[in-house]
Design a protein around this nucleic acid. Structure first.
Length: 461
RNA sequence: GGCGUUGUAGCCAAGUGGUAAGGCACGAGUCUGCAAAACUCUGAUUCGGCGGUUCGAAUCCGCCCAACGCCUCCA
């Protein structure tokens, strides 16, 4: 079946085929590890995970790279200001390395909680300083870069075109409208490849241009080239990376190799919070941990993300997460019912569902549509192992561990268990007054009882 | 100022010319000593508004209204 993916470069859904053989080479812009990743960041990671899984579902093998940015991201524009890593280090009284390790670990934990497959290669910027220096040297040799008193800049005027992703037209942009002009820069859109480090700068390396540290974009180009070659299949990231980071990556690579590094550029849209942007000033920055703390499964967040297309904004509300959490539990219970079922379903029906599912995911990862088919299978009145197997197959794309019930590992305190035992007896005695009284008592202590035919289940409310 | 996106039932949202997917909530029923849970059923003659094109529009065009985003670090 044909796989179509939306390509930011062409602004259309293009048919996807790997450049070489059966292997898909893919690069994803990873986190800058100076603070915790938000659920917004995680939406992009979930999108990338679905992409991976859909590619595998289509029979391709993957060579997927994700970088960890542990240096060189400045807090302000105009190529000046503090490095984010260093700023966090100062604030938290740690070294930049400690900061990077700390937040990398927490980021990885989030990926694990969300059952996101790890890329084949995860690489750190600081481990690839030499590759970056080589890249910059190459650009200098070819005349695409020049040195100023503060940095090595990329000269965008040397390119045939700049802004192929975002569609900006350099001539129409007012220079310095929002950014102070650096008098040494040849063009306002020139960006720093390599920055000369002030004496007290914490992270710096020797280079042909003195003691320096990398610019914001060079790491991705250098590492992409090292692991995936001059041109690979897919480059992904958040939508905000289009106008600056990805344009500059393309510029750098075109300068050095003459090629756009990726055939497909794919971008995940923003997550909105109550209809607006997530921002510190509004106090609506949520972490995955905030969702977990409220008693929801992290996979409920993943399922929530599937309710919208990755290319559309989605509005986060607690009501919606609550809905997704219930849906998650229901889906898993539906799987269990099919798994325990002994009825038969015609292969034709199975094939039909599978085709519809394939069609949905292969149409630019249409997860909302795919989910509607998943639900049809889950709710199918005939309970059959064949349908359980089908759901399991779908789950290779969904990654919600459909065959694992959400575990309730919480220990029920003894005093609650005692009340439950008393209530069981009261019910056997048909002493409804006492039974109701005990139920109220249990509820007041924060627990709920579910009466089954011969048993009683207790759980925390 | 420039560029762009969105507006579909209470909430999250599919659907881009052929007569409104799905999930959750609500409501009804079954079950239950009663509840809860579970199970079953149910919801928009209508897609921000007004015009237009068309045999036919949520889908195309025009205008208007509203919300949001980018142009600066951000997934």
């Amino acid at each position: 079946m044909e796989l179509k993916l939306y390509n930011t470069l062409t602004k259309t859904k293009d048919i996807f085929k790997p450049l070489e053989g059966n292997e898909v080479r893919m690069y994803s812009c990873g986190p800058t590890v100076y603070k915790d990743a938000t659920i917004g960041n995680m939406r992009t990671n979930i999108f990338q995970d679905v992409l991976r899984r859909v590619l595998k579902y289509n029979g391709y093998t993957l060579k997927h790279i994700m970088n960890i940015t542990d240096v060189g991201h400045l807090v302000s524009d105009a190529d000046e200001g503090e490095d984010k890593m260093i700023k966090s280090a100062k604030e938290e009284g740690k070294t930049p390395l400690e900061i990077a390790e700390f937040y990398t670990k927490r980021f990885m934990n989030d990926l694990l909680s969300l059952n996101i497959e790890l890329p084949e290669i995860i690489c750190k910027a600081t481990d690839h300083i030499n590759e970056m220096i080589e890249f910059v040297s190459g650009l200098m040799e070819k005349g695409y870069a020049y040195e100023t008193s503060t940095a090595i800049y990329f000269d965008v005027s040397k390119l045939d075109e700049y802004g192929v992703l975002s569609g900006i037209n350099l001539e129409e942009q007012k220079a310095g409208a929002r950014v102070d002009i650096d008098q040494e820069k040849k063009n306002p859109y020139d960006f720093a490849l390599w920055i000369k480090a002030p004496k007290n700068h914490l992270m710096k390396w020797d280079s042909p241009w003195g003691v320096c540290y990398p610019g914001w974009h060079i790491e991705c180009s250098a590492m992409g080239k090292k692991y995936l070659g001059e041109q690979f299949d897919i480059h992904t990231g958040g939508i905000d990376l289009i106008p600056t980071h990805h344009e500059n990556e393309i510029a750098q690579s075109k300068g050095l190799t003459g090629k756009n590094p990726a055939k497909f550029w794919m971008h995940g849209e923003y997550l909105l919070i109550n209809g607006g942007k997530m921002s510190k000033s509004l106090g609506n920055v949520y972490l995955l941990n905030d969702i977990i703390k409220k008693g929801y499964s992290p996979l409920a967040y993943k399922l929530f993300c599937y309710s919208a297309s990755y290319r559309n904004k989605i509005n986060f509300t607690w009501e919606a997460i609550d809905a997704s959490n219930k849906a998650l539990i229901k889906l898993k219970e539906s799987y269990k019912k099919h798994f325990e079922g002994n009825e038969n379903v015609q292969d034709e029906i199975i094939n039909n569902y599978e085709n519809k599912f394939n069609e949905a995911i292969n149409d630019d990862l249409n997860m909302p549509l795919a989910m509607s088919i998943v639900w049809e299978v889950a709710k199918y009145s005939v309970k059959s192992k064949k349908l359980a197997d089908l759901l399991l197959k779908f789950d290779t794309v969904l990654g919600i561990k459909i065959d694992e019930l959400e575990e309730n590992n919480e220990e029920i305190p003894n005093d609650i268990l005692e009340l439950v035992e008393k209530r069981k007896q009261a019910r056997l005695d048909k002493n409804w007054d006492l039974s109701d009284k005990l139920r109220n008592e249990i509820n007041e202590k924060g627990y709920n009882v579910k009466d089954l035919k011969d048993d009683m289940i207790v759980e925390r409310i």
